[in-house]
């Protein structure tokens, strides 16, 4: 593999990462997975930038990737604050709840298939409480840490 082939291969990997991230961002409905996909698109661009920087023997590519890291960290902090506040308002990470924010001329998203939530795989047996409830240990309660 020579330097030109190295550049070409890295660009193709970057394009693949970018495209796969795009698919995830457009199609997934969980807000967290959408943000993971956006980060993946940034990764694809970073791979290309590092490859160009090496090809031209220039530090600019790596500097831009450092800036991308910074922007990604800022983006993650703000995005997670927004996601948490949206979750507290709606009780769900589903992005379709917020579809009334769309433009006026866009059609409404109607769920064609409504799925029941999956039952947990294991149902552990529970013991019925029996006997006399023990007296609470006042000393232990007094020293228990309060969070």
């Amino acid at each position: 593999m020579d330097e030109l082939a190295l550049l070409q291969n890295y660009l193709i990997v970057g394009a693949l990462l970018f495209g796969i991230g795009l698919v995830g961002f457009v199609s997934r409905r969980n807000m967290i997975v959408m943000f993971l996909s956006a980060e993946m698109m940034l990764q694809g661009v970073s791979v290309s930038l590092v490859a160009w920087g090496r090809y031209h023997n220039d530090w600019g590519g790596q500097m831009l990737v450092i800036l991308i890291l910074t922007v990604a960290a800022c983006e993650a902090a703000i995005a997670l604050a927004v996601v948490l506040s949206l979750f507290h308002q709606s009780g769900s990470l589903d992005i379709a709840i917020w579809q009334h924010l769309r433009e006026d001329n866009q059609p409404e998203f109607i769920e064609r298939e409504v799925l029941e939530p999956l039952a947990p795989e294991h149902q552990w047996p529970k013991l019925a409480p029996s006997g006399i409830e023990p007296e609470p240990d006042l000393e232990e309660i007094a020293h228990r840490s309060h969070v």
Binding site: V26, S27, R28, R29, N30, I32, V33, V83, L84, F87, S92, L93, D94, A96, F109, E111, E113, V114, L115, E116, P117, L118, A119, P120
Partner: peptide, 16 residues
């Protein structure tokens, strides 16, 4: 913090 237990319905459907 936010994910309900198990796989919720919106995770098993993607739009378009």
């Amino acid at each position: 913090l936010a994910q309900p237990k198990g796989e919720s319905a919106y995770d098993r459907l993607s739009w378009g």
